[in-house]
């Protein structure tokens, strides 16, 4: 039972982290129709910039937390303004290729400046202690800090999108981009703003995930694909959908990795007999399979199921 509560908290931490990435991506995707392959690269840049500011320059963790996402956001807005917008006139495929190339470019640039190895970007000392214990497991203060930051960002985003004028324009542009343009709003400006804020959010995610999950050139690649799964499952353009899908996927992957459930038990329950020589059995893969081994593919199974049975996603309004 202790382990259950620990996993609830860990899943929440990972889910909220995914949310920070997917919230920006889902807005960008639904508004601009751009499948931004480079989104996770901005997450990586956030972590590396924060490492540079907090550790190499020695300005402390908070300086990194504030400055790094701003730099990432400005870089994102600049890339939209001077790169994506020019490519936009040629259609979606060139845009797709542009962001794909950008992702590769960012990875190489990161390797060039910071090297192939993992960099020692660590939790600040004032958060690096066990806040409380559940059973034998200790919950670090840093994890709670991650939860608080993500909650804060979710609240802020929700407020801006639902209570402010700019939020209303964004909302309208999500559903009826052509109409909003026809009404005379500066849609390209809105696009640039959304792209900048979206990438800055990814930057924040990188800043706080870097110490927990490791800061290395492969970090964008390992998280990149799962973020797309999140926005498809959640529904395009839906902030609540992104939150729900992120938490769902966070808990699924955490619980799948935490329990060594063996598929053998299902086969035995079905009345099958365990073969004496497991390697000669046709079902040998099923006999030896455990839940943690298939954990990483479960989000993709979920995505396929959602696309088949509810193509608009959990809370989306438009079809994917």
């Amino acid at each position: 039972m202790d382990l259950f509560f620990v996993n609830i908290i860990d899943g929440l931490v990972f889910g909220l982290l995914l949310f920070m990435l997917s919230s920006g991506l889902t807005l960008i995707f639904s508004m601009m129709g751009v499948l931004n392959f480079a989104h996770a690269s901005f997450y990586m840049l956030g972590a590396y910039f924060a490492y540079q500011i907090s550790t190499v320059l020695g300005l402390g963790f908070l300086a990194g937390l504030i400055v790094a996402p701003i730099i990432v956001g400005i870089a994102g807005a600049g890339i939209e303004r001077y790169g994506l917008r020019r490519v936009h006139q040629y259609g979606h495929v060139p845009e797709l290729i542009f962001t794909f190339g950008l992702a590769l470019l960012v990875q190489e640039v990161v390797k060039l400046f910071w090297g192939q190895n993992q960099v020692p970007y660590a939790e600040p000392a004032w958060l690096d202690f066990a806040l409380f214990n559940i059973g034998e497991n200790s919950i670090e203060a840093y994890k709670v800090f991650m939860i608080l930051i993500s909650m804060l960002i979710f609240g802020g985003l929700l407020y801006i999108l639902t209570k402010t004028r700019i939020g209303m324009i964004i909302q309208a542009a999500l559903s009826y981009p052509k109409t909003v343009e026809a009404l005379g709003h500066n849609v390209p400006m809105v696009f640039m703003g959304v792209f900048g804020v979206g990438t800055a959010l990814a930057g924040v995610a990188g800043v706080i995930a870097g110490p927990a999950l490791g800061t290395f050139p492969g970090m964008a690649f390992t998280l990149g694909s799962i973020v797309f799964v999140t926005i498809v499952v959640g529904g395009l353009g839906s902030l609540w959908g992104a939150l729900a899908a992120s938490l769902l996927i966070g808990w699924i992957t955490t619980f799948a990795a935490a329990y060594n459930f063996e598929f053998k038990t299902i086969l035995l329950a079905l009345g099958m007999e365990e073969p004496a020589l497991i390697w000669d059995s046709k079902l040998r893969d099923l006999w030896t399979l455990t839940l943690p081994q298939i954990g990483p593919i479960l989000p993709y199974v979920l995505m396929v199921a959602i696309l088949v049975f509810r193509p608009q996603g959990l809370m989306g309004k438009r079809e994917a």
Binding site: D2, L3, T222, A257, P292
Partner: peptide, 25 residues
């Protein structure tokens, strides 16, 4: 108390594995 293999290079967050190890005593 535990003998398991995890997917190579695919695990994003090792925390659940660590929790199991600690809980196993």
């Amino acid at each position: 108390v535990g003998n398991e293999l995890h997917p190579i290079g695919k695990v994003k967050d090792f925390t659940p594995y660590a929790r199991k190890i600690v809980a196993s005593g």
